[in-house]
Design a protein around this nucleic acid. Structure first.
Length: 417
RNA sequence: GAGGUCAUGGCGAAAUGGUUAACGCGACGGGUUGUGGCCCCGUUAUCGCCGGUUCAAUUCCGGCUGAUCUCCCCA
């Protein structure tokens, strides 16, 4: 084989792209109803944007970025996530000047240099939304509701929602000290991953799969929230209840990116190997100013389209397949061939999906193609039909045939749809 | 960044250190010089790449690449 696609990427071919188109159109439709407008930002940005926006000590920035130097000597990075670029565009285009809340969505590829596994790719695709300009917990709830509606509408079964409040950076810093004080005496009992987490990201330690026995009596972040944070969290929950969106509180939920404040949430579903997160997000009140904008709040959400699709396929959901032609033209002989070309074109102009043979093959082979493509009709045109000014329309499911005047073909097909 | 499993045709999938690499599906052609889906016949593979062992490698060994699964982490 001469060339292979880069590791962790995929070719989406006709027959499966329809599934992607389905997900994308549903995403757009839900955003339309929620009044989120599409934003398309560059696929690469200045490296520093992600360093500042995502967080210097995150795995993404430390080891997963596709970074390169352009010919002008600038360090550029293929976007590893969507929020930083959107925030940059929000600031650069001074959308904060809009008196109303700015609500944006995006769909597109993201890039992370990782070892691929089930539901994890180097180029993957996210659908995400960001809402700027309000700290109202109702907006957090709206963001969650949009995600919930999307999953529901694509037919996903059995997904769950977990929420948490991660407070403010100051609260987290204080909690972090207390947690480390709790963990320090147990350090030697913990697994090697936990010991490294203690240095890199202590809040994640409590989520460890193997060391749970040592965590009895551990402090909880939720107990350290100040009145404002607790009130915000309560209100988010009451809005979710108001909308009948079921959720669980997961006090150990910490998101992988540094910028979250207050609300953090994840949607989960089984069916992607060892991975269960299909989407997540939260509020990021400090991010806009971190990236050089004014003090402005934001809340958002991103979901992985590959993962959602894997779960759907795993659940045996009905998904759209390749387009089937309404009619397949079978032409016999040169004169019929010429006429078939014009009929084909005319029918297509009327909006009918139509195909014909281009191999000059015999009738049997042409009908076989029509059958294989699952055409509804075969339109058979030979010298006899040409003389009569007719074409034979054969219903391939029933085998019934009828002669149709050539100039009535398109109308006949349209009424049969 | 670490580890396990794997790599044969368009697809699924056997077997084998030696001269025809099963079988199934599909595709193409024919049986039926104008009727598909059923049936019958025929055709359809430089065994991922590079190197090594050997008289001989698709088969054994090593490296590479990729897939898949898992850890870290994440969508």
């Amino acid at each position: 084989m001469a060339f292979q696609k880069p590791k962790g990427t995929q070719d989406l071919l006709p027959g499966t792209v329809e599934r992607w188109q389905f997900l994308e159109s549903k995403a757009r439709e839900v955003c339309r109803r929620f009044m989120y407008g599409e934003i398309r930002t560059p696929i690469f940005e200045a490296t520093e944007l992600f360093q500042r926006g995502v967080g210097e000590t995150t795995d993404i920035v430390e080891k997963e970025m596709y970074t390169f130097e352009d010919k002008g000597g600038r360090s550029m990075t293929l976007r590893p996530e969507g929020t930083a670029g959107v925030v940059r565009a929000y600031v650069e285009n001074k959308l904060y000047g809009d008196p109303d809340i700015t609500k944006l969505y995006y769909i597109g590829p993201m890039f992370r240099y990782e070892q691929p596994q089930a539901g994890r790719y180097r180029q993957f695709h996210q659908f995400g939304i960001e809402a700027f300009g309000s700290s109202d917990p109702g907006l957090d709830a709206e963001v969650i509701a949009l995600g919930h509606q999307f999953y529901k509408e694509i037919g996903l079964q059995g997904f769950t929602l977990e929420i948490n409040s991660v407070g403010t950076p100051a609260i987290r810093a204080a909690f972090r000290e207390e947690l480390l004080a709790f963990l320090a005496p147990k350090k030697d009992l913990l697994c090697k991953d936990c010991r490294s987490r203690m240095e890199r990201n202590p809040l994640r330690v409590l989520d460890c799969k193997v060391d749970q026995e040592h965590f009895a009596g551990a402090p909880s972040l939720l107990d350290h929230l100040d009145a404002e944070c607790a009130d915000h969290f309560d209100k988010v929950q009451s809005y979710l209840k108001e909308m009948n969106i079921p959720y669980d509180i997961n006090p150990k939920l910490v998101r992988g990116l540094d910028y979250y404040t207050h609300t953090a949430f994840e949607f989960k579903a089984a069916g992607i190997g060892s991975i269960d997160t299909i989407g997540g997000g939260g509020r990021y009140n400090g991010l806009v100013s971190d990236v050089g904008g004014p003090e402005q709040t934001g809340v958002g959400f991103g979901l992985g389209l590959e993962r959602v699709l894997l779960v759907l396929e795993n659940q045996g959901a009905e998904l759209p397949a390749a387009t089937k032609p309404e009619v397949y033209f079978v032409a016999l002989g040169e004169a019929a061939e010429r006429r078939a070309v014009s009929l084909l074109n005319a029918v297509r102009e009327k909006g009918i999906a139509a195909e014909k043979d281009y191999g000059g093959r015999k009738m049997k082979a042409q009908l076989k193609s029509a059958d294989r493509l699952a055409a509804k009709y075969a339109a058979i045109l030979g010298d006899d039909e040409l003389l009569r000014g007719e074409i034979v329309l054969k219903n391939l499911a029933t085998g019934e045939q009828e002669a149709v005047a050539l100039d009535k073909l398109a109308d006949r097909l349209l009424e049969g749809q």
